[in-house]
Amino acid sequence: MFFQSNINRNKYFLQNIIFLFFFIFPNISFAAGDAISYPKNDWSFSGIMGTYDRASQQRGLQVYQEVCSGCHGLRLVAYRNLKALGYNDEEVKAFAAEKSVQDINEDGETIERPARSSDKFVSPYPNDLAARAGNGGAYPPDLSLIVKSRSGGADYLHALLTGYKDAPSNKNVPDGMYFNSYYQGNLIGMPQPLYEDGVTYADGTKATPAQMAKDVATFLAWASEPELEDRKRIGISVICFLLVLTILSYFAMRQIWAPIKSRAKKTS
């Protein structure tokens, strides 16, 4: 019947529209973004079931702590959040207590006190201007959202951290700038941060620059999207539920419409 034929035809319409939407639009945004492409890594947290590799996260925290935190803040992450990395309350408390934060005492005087687990990561500079001034005018961005706020995400970060090369002879690298093959314009204000055995991992993992880059990118991916594991876990059950509901409602619809369809068939 004509009703049914419309269904079939429209199914393809819908499919086409969905296809257009999901496959053409990303290409647009990529084309509009940057021309540089970054080597793809195999991340523990990618894919529908992906979760953060705890050991890598913990090593990444160590790299952040020992290498990055001198210049880069992590102001949106609280020490208590580190429990998600597999640390217990005591460890988090001890970790926080090594830092000191400014506070005001009962008499209104500014004091320094050890950080508590409810405090956010202490930033290395009191404000953006000081951060810029302390780094020869180049602003070291806060890393709380670095993976989410760069196209390419963790792959970009990994590429950037391992992308320091000797500049080609025709490229003039001014003082205080460094050549990086993955940075926009190739000139970056940050000196190469990761060197062989730059940190000593507690778990005995060999600290190659690639390994450290991978670990710190995993840690910072978590800092950007701490909800990722919950999101995917809930997402799977929600989608299963919706599929069951959709299938049930399809058969319920068939059943309800059956008399109309058969009558229409008779009249034609």
Binding site: F241, L248, P259
Partner: peptide, 27 residues
């Protein structure tokens, strides 16, 4: 049409579909 519809309403499949939709909305 209406009487057929009423028969349909009692049907287990249809009732459970609406019930499941209700559960989803509540969740």
């Amino acid at each position: 049409l209406k009487s057929e519809q009423d028969e349909g309403k009692r049907d287990f499949l249809i009732v459970s579909t609406y019930a499941l939709a209700g559960v989803g909305a509540a969740a």
